[in-house]
Design a binder for these strands. Structure first.
Length: 409
RNA sequence: GCCCGGAUAGCUCAGGGGUAGAGCGCAGGACUGUGGAUCCUGUCGUCCCGGGUUCGAGUCCCGGUCCGGGCCCCA
């Protein structure tokens, strides 16, 4: 019986890994160009870290287990909580703001489907220490820049959870939180019946529905102002000012809710326009406060996470391959072939025969692996200190000295 | 947790109650100093697992597992 992969996991073959590494490289390059530096936290953490952040309910969707010492642990389902935990433990003395980025695998116990796996990768950033609209604008523009550079077709929606919170401020906390959840799900019918059920007054009801339907360009702020006249819109306006100056394309969407309490202000999401089916969200982020929940000082932060696998699925990047050379040798000259190969490896990818095949088979293999050049080591050429070089694309072949060989490759 | 569709060679898949198939791939040869084309040969299977029906099940029935898609969820 063959041993299969665990459910929801994948094997990545060389072609796919090259593509994934190429995408990863773009993400790293752009994040680093904004001054973000890479961090890495453990693959598993205390389960508590995630239940404090998201509630007991998420245990169902986490790989949670007891270790041999009886500790409750969990494979990380995301990286924001671990990064903030790390910040609280080790980085509070560092000069603010802190700019961190991460690229790592995460684990969730969910039913797999297109674009959703039990082991998946996230690339994300956290900008810690600022509650300013400038911080939101920086992080949003960084996410935008990455997706744009990867030539992904996407829609960026930016919202502000403060509006809904302000609107619901006089309601019971549980009721407000339930309403937020329904809005987040875009469950309009559910929302209607819940509002009936809880006897929310009709003015407030109208306000909620008008606000949730507000999606569009910047001027919807004026409509929002009519619905909630005493809310301070200067933060979101400042974010818009900067994004407009940077030519970032976005839609304001006051229906983005996020049920969870630690989101404090600006939130944003990006959706791929095609190629992903139901799981089309490729980026999510916003400003939040978590540090105090993990025993640190109350510290504002803002960040995002990109769904790396979903992006890899729809992204068409050119993978730049190094020149590939196969050193082909006649029987008895394998040692020479290894020496020549060694000499060339700082210039190209060089492979030699290890199957003890004849020259014909070696060339055939060179062709199969899509090599650019074959260096043929034969007795006749070697007598004059030379080798034959064959261009496998054109078929052209010439005899060159060892010095000339370095120039050709 | 729910719904739909799958599972047969390394891969893609056809078939169908009576001896397990094709194409591709891989390996070798035709061709012992030269790749891609062609031809030949070889390699390979608990026909997903377990149970049932049957003289006989890879095929039909039931249960399970896994995969794909959708729902739920999505920190």
């Amino acid at each position: 019986m063959k041993i299969e992969r665990p459910r929801g996991t994948r094997d990545f073959l060389p072609d796919e890994m090259e593509k994934r590494r190429a995408i990863e490289k773009v993400m790293r390059r752009i994040a680093e160009s904004y001054g973000y530096r890479e961090v890495l936290t453990p693959t598993f953490e205390h389960l508590e870290l995630f239940t404090i952040k998201s509630g007991e309910g998420i245990i169902e969707e986490i790989y949670a287990f007891k270790d041999k010492g009886g500790r409750d642990l969990a494979l990380r389902p995301e990286l924001t909580a671990p990064v903030i935990r790390m910040f609280v433990n080790e980085c509070t003395g560092m000069p603010k703001p802190l700019r961190f980025y991460y690229f790592a695998n995460c684990f969730r116990y969910e039913r797999p489907q297109k674009g959703r796996y039990r082991e998946f990768w996230q690339f994300g950033v956290e900008l810690i220490g600022s509650a300013s609209p400038l911080a939101d604008a920086e992080v949003i523009s960084l996410a935008y820049r990455i997706m744009d550079e990867l030539k992904i077709e996407f829609d960026l929606h930016i919202g502000h959870v403060g509006l809904l919170r302000h609107l619901l401020r006089d309601l019971d906390e549980n009721v407000a939180s339930k309403i937020m959840r329904l809005i987040d799900k875009k469950d309009i019918e559910g929302l209607e019946s819940y509002l009936d059920e809880t006897k929310v007054d009709s003015d407030l009801r109208d306000s909620i529905f008008s606000l949730v339907e507000l999606v569009g360009s910047r001027d919807i702020i004026e409509s929002a102002r009519e619905i909630i006249p005493n809310f301070d819109f200067s933060h979101i306006e400042k974010v818009c000012d900067i994004l407009d100056a940077l030519d970032v394309e976005y839609k304001l969407d006051f229906g983005i809710a996020r049920g969870l309490d630690y989101y404090t202000g600006v939130v944003f999401e990006a959706y791929a326009r095609e190629g992903l089916g139901a799981q089309n969200q490729i980026c999510g982020g916003g400003s939040y406060r978590l540090a105090h929940l993990f025993g640190g000082d109350d510290t504002p932060a803002t960040g995002f996470a990109l769904g790396f696998d979903r992006i890899a699925e729809i992204c068409k990047v050119e993978v730049v391959r190094k020149k590939k050379v196969v050193v082909v040798s006649f029987k008895g000259l394998e040692g020479e072939a290894f020496k020549i190969a060694s000499m060339l490896r700082n210039r190209a990818v060089v492979v030699t025969d290890v199957m003890e095949r004849n020259v014909k088979k070696q060339l055939s293999y060179a062709n199969d692996i899509n090599a650019d050049l074959a260096v043929i080591v034969g007795e006749r050429e070697l007598r004059d200190g030379k080798v034959a070089v064959k261009d496998l694309k054109s078929g052209e072949q010439k005899t060159v000295s060892m010095e000339e060989l370095l120039d050709v490759i």
